[in-house]
Simulated scan of single mutants.
Amino acid sequence: MSSVITVSQLNRYLASKLRSDLKLKGIAVKGEISNFNIHYKSGHAYFTVKDSSSALKAVMFSSSVSRLKFVPEDGMSVLVMGNIEVYERDGVYQIIATEIAPLGVGVMHVQLEQTKKKLEKMGVFDVNKKKKITLVT
């Protein structure tokens, strides 16, 4: 019979194994974002990256979130860069994201579309709210 260990010991062991694996540092994972949520107190982003048959939990700490040039949205195809680690308390492996890049379209395009949506919600493009321009001759 093999040795008996506690759940905490197992999770700590697996966490150390993942931390020491250089292939899991600076990894880039391609997939679709789901359940994107920024925690209101900490500013950390929690989400899932998934493809047609698997899912990977992800967290992006507030310092990295503040450097994003766009707001990730559910259903967006992205490339997530970071390190694979174990959250020891729950025994769950996840990617600690340091960067997120949209796939298929550039960051500038995503930024522009998100700004247009925001301005549209504010009524900036509403024809009924526009004032006539009077030309002075």
Rank of each mutant, 00 (worst) to 15 (best):
N37F: 14
K121G: 08
T98G: 07
R12W: 06
Y13V: 04
K23N: 11
N83T: 15
S52M: 05
G123R: 02
E32Q: 12
F47R: 04
S54D: 01
F61R: 00
L10V: 10
Q94L: 07
T134E: 14
V78H: 03
V107Q: 13
I33Y: 07
E120S: 11
T134P: 00
D21K: 03
S52F: 00
R67H: 12
M60H: 08
V65M: 09
Q94E: 12
S62V: 09
L79Y: 04
I133V: 14
E88R: 11
G104Q: 03
Y87Q: 06
N35P: 02
N83W: 07
S66W: 11
Q94S: 08
A15S: 15
K129W: 07
E32K: 10
N37T: 10
V86E: 03
P72N: 09
S66F: 07
Y93P: 02
A15I: 02
S53D: 10
D74L: 01
M122W: 01
L135Q: 00
H109V: 10
S42G: 01
S53Y: 09
Y13S: 10
K129T: 04
Q111I: 12
K57S: 11
Y13M: 12
K25T: 07
S8E: 10
L10I: 09
K23H: 15
L135D: 02
E113G: 05
H109R: 12
K57L: 00
D74M: 01
K121M: 13
V92C: 05
L103W: 01
V78E: 07
V92I: 13
V107R: 11
V29F: 10
E120A: 11
V86D: 02
Q111T: 14
G75N: 02
E32L: 00
L112Y: 14
L18K: 00
D126M: 12
V105I: 14
L10G: 01
L24R: 15
Y46H: 12
Q94W: 05
S63Q: 14
H39S: 08
D90N: 04
L79N: 05
T6C: 08
E120F: 03
V105C: 04
V92R: 13
Y93W: 12
K129P: 02
S66K: 15
I84C: 00
V71T: 14
V80G: 03
T134W: 14
K117M: 12
L24V: 12
S34V: 02
G43W: 01
Q111L: 15
M60I: 08
E85Q: 11
I96M: 12
K117Q: 13
F61D: 01
A45C: 04
S62W: 02
V49A: 03
L103N: 09
A55E: 10
Y40N: 06
M76S: 03
I27K: 14
L24M: 14
K69N: 09
K23F: 10
I100T: 05
K50I: 04
G75Y: 09
V92M: 09
R12D: 14
P72E: 14
K41A: 04
Y93V: 04
E99A: 15
T48K: 10
I96E: 06
V110C: 05
